[in-house]
Design a protein around this nucleic acid. Sequence first.
DNA 1: ATTTACGTAAAATATTTATTGTACGAAGTT
DNA 2: AACTTCGTACAATAAATATTTTACGTAAAT
Lengths: 178, 178
Amino acid sequence: MDEQPLGRIKVMEDQFAEKIADNMHTYGVSTTVGRVLGIIYMNRKPMTLDELSEATGMSKTRMSQVVREMVDLNIAEKVLQKGVRKDLYNVEQDYYQTFISLFTSNWRKAINKNKMFEKKLSAELKEITSNEPIDEELEAKINLLLKETKEWLDYYQWLANLVEFFESGEIFKHVPKP
Amino acid sequence: MDEQPLGRIKVMEDQFAEKIADNMHTYGVSTTVGRVLGIIYMNRKPMTLDELSEATGMSKTRMSQVVREMVDLNIAEKVLQKGVRKDLYNVEQDYYQTFISLFTSNWRKAINKNKMFEKKLSAELKEITSNEPIDEELEAKINLLLKETKEWLDYYQWLANLVEFFESGEIFKHVPKP
DNA sequence: ATTTACGTAAAATATTTATTGTACGAAGTT
DNA sequence: AACTTCGTACAATAAATATTTTACGTAAAT
C-alpha cells in the first residue's frame, strides 16, 4: 500500500503480462510461451534470449525453444538489428491478430493431417463397394459409413472455410472490433 | 487385402473414430476424451462405463473421469433409461455443434477468469491516478498502461461477442455448412 | 589465428498430467 | 437384513511434457 508509484506500476505491468500468459493458455500453448509473449509485449520492444532468460528466470536454452515455437505459430518474429549480434525477438502487438494466428495455425495443422485420411478412406470405400458381393446388411453398413464420410468431409471443408473467414479479416465485418 | 468385407468395415470405422479423436486434440482436450467421443459416436447409441472400458481397454475409473470432463465441456450427456441401472452416456452427433460447444466452453472460461482481473486492474489504476503526486515520466507510464488496459478490455469484449456469434448460430449465416 | 560469445542439439532431470488400483458409500436385488 | 453392483474419491503409479545441463559448431572480435 505504501509502495512507490513506480513500483506499483511495475506490479501492474507484471499482472498484465501474467494475464496475457493466461489467455494464451486457452489456445493450448504452454504456459511459458504465454509468459514470454506477455513479457515481450510489456517490454514494448524486441528482446534477446538473454534478456528473456533474465526476465523469466529460466535457462537460455528454454528461451530458445520457446521462441522457436512462437515463430512457428506466427506469433513472434526474429528481428535483425545491424550492429547487434544477438538475435532479437518481437511479438505481434495486436491481440486480435495473435488470436487469429493461433487459431488458424492450429486448425490448418488439423486440416492438413485430415487431407491424407480423406484420400485413403474414400479410396477404400470405393473399392469395397465395387468389388465385393453385397448382401443386404453389408450394404446398409456401407451406406451408413459413406454418409458419415461425406459429413466428415463437409465438416472439414467448413473448417477450412472458417479459417479463411478469420484469416482474411472477414470476421471483423460481422464481429467488429469494439 | 483378402479380408472379409465386414472386417474391413470395422477397420474403417475404427480409423474414423481415431480421426475424430485426432480432431478433438486440436481443441486441447486429452487424447482419451477424443477417443471416447469417437467410440460413442461410431457406436451410434449411448454406452455405459463398462462398455467404454472394454472398448478402450482402460479402467472404469478413467472412463468415469473422462465422461465427466466431457459432460462439463457439453459434448456428452448422461442418458436415463428406465429399467437400466448403469449410467448411459451419449455424445452430440453433430460435428458443428461439437466444435461450437468446445470453442465456447473454452473461451467462456477464459472470459470469466478475466472479469476479476478487469475490476482489480482498473480500480488500481484509478487510485494511482487520483492519489499520487505525478511527475511527467510517471504520467507517461500511467497513460500507456491505461491505454493498454483499454485495449485489453476491448479485446475481451470482442471475444465475448465472438463466442455469442458462434453460440447463436449466426456464424452459419456467413460461413454456411456445405 | 586464437579467443570469445552466440544459439541450439542431445541427453539428463524435474514437473505435470494421465491412468490405475483400492476402498467405500449409495442404491438395487435377493 | 445380507448381498451385489454401481460410480467415484483418493492415493499410488506410469507416461508425457517441460526444463536444465553439457557440449559443440559457427561466426564475430581480438
